[in-house]
Design a protein around this nucleic acid. Sequence first.
DNA 1: CGCTGGTCGTTCAGATTTTAAGGAAGTAGG
DNA 2: CCTACTTCCTTAAAATCTGAACGACCAGCG
Lengths: 153, 153
Amino acid sequence: MSNTLPLNEAEMRAWRAVIDGSWHLQTRLDDELRAATGLSISDYHVLVLLSEAPDRRLRMGGIAGRLVFSPSRLTYQISAMEKRGLVRRQPCPDDRRGSEAVLTDAGLDALRQAAPGHLTAVRRYLVDDLDEAEAEVLTRVFTRLQAKLRETQ
Amino acid sequence: MSNTLPLNEAEMRAWRAVIDGSWHLQTRLDDELRAATGLSISDYHVLVLLSEAPDRRLRMGGIAGRLVFSPSRLTYQISAMEKRGLVRRQPCPDDRRGSEAVLTDAGLDALRQAAPGHLTAVRRYLVDDLDEAEAEVLTRVFTRLQAKLRETQ
DNA sequence: CGCTGGTCGTTCAGATTTTAAGGAAGTAGG
DNA sequence: CCTACTTCCTTAAAATCTGAACGACCAGCG
């Protein structure tokens, strides 16, 4: 139940800072990652997801759900990565409608090569400037946000 | 000068929460705004920017800079909005290379109609859950982030 | 002036994403 | 089994976005 007053000034400032800041940050990280490795931030996210998945494989729908990709976008994304040898596609064993994306060795290599630089950028732009309390607040606020987004579908 | 250690667990948690959370939030707000008003979040941002500008007009480059849009994207964006009557394009008086986008009355109406619902959504997903201290931290962190991004171009 | 080098938007081709429409399989009720 | 209904993913066409190339213009200099 949220009230419908316009945001007050502090709220507005916080809100705009978050929206603008996170957007600019995404853009910058994507640019740097592309320049350094040829991977887009989407490629990178897919690689991370698969690398952490049991047996390095996930259903299409699972990936799409986590990355908030439309099914067709995911199809395109995985196809593109498949062409470059980063992932392989396999029919899903227990559900013949579905297919799985599997991380290849080349894909894992690409991730291992990209990660340090990317994380350094994350550090440079954000993490290094956070003190412990700030990190804690960010984690709390954004985790709560995600929970709220999920619970409303 | 940032160190090159991998992120520790708390840092990683904070980082991922921010990235995922802000991305999901953007997506959700865009979806709701589209459904309610037919405006994309980009349309909305352009409208807000122009509505706050002196004389309701801005140079193309000025808009592109603030929204982190490529020049060609901005051209496309403004053209699309022009077709719908939300903005008008005018040659820039003091620099004949440039052009300005001017908010039309219809554009201002569209914004006024869209804003309350959008702000309510912002409230529902984020602002209402923030206490004062949290809002303050978010403002501080993301403002600092933007400054850092700007200073490295 | 006439040149040179830079800036401002636009345009065009190509890449990416969305939307709508299927095809193939799973699931439940009769 | 059949029939409907649903889910999973892909395809095709349309919308949007990016990057390179361009034309028009500004600014500085000889």
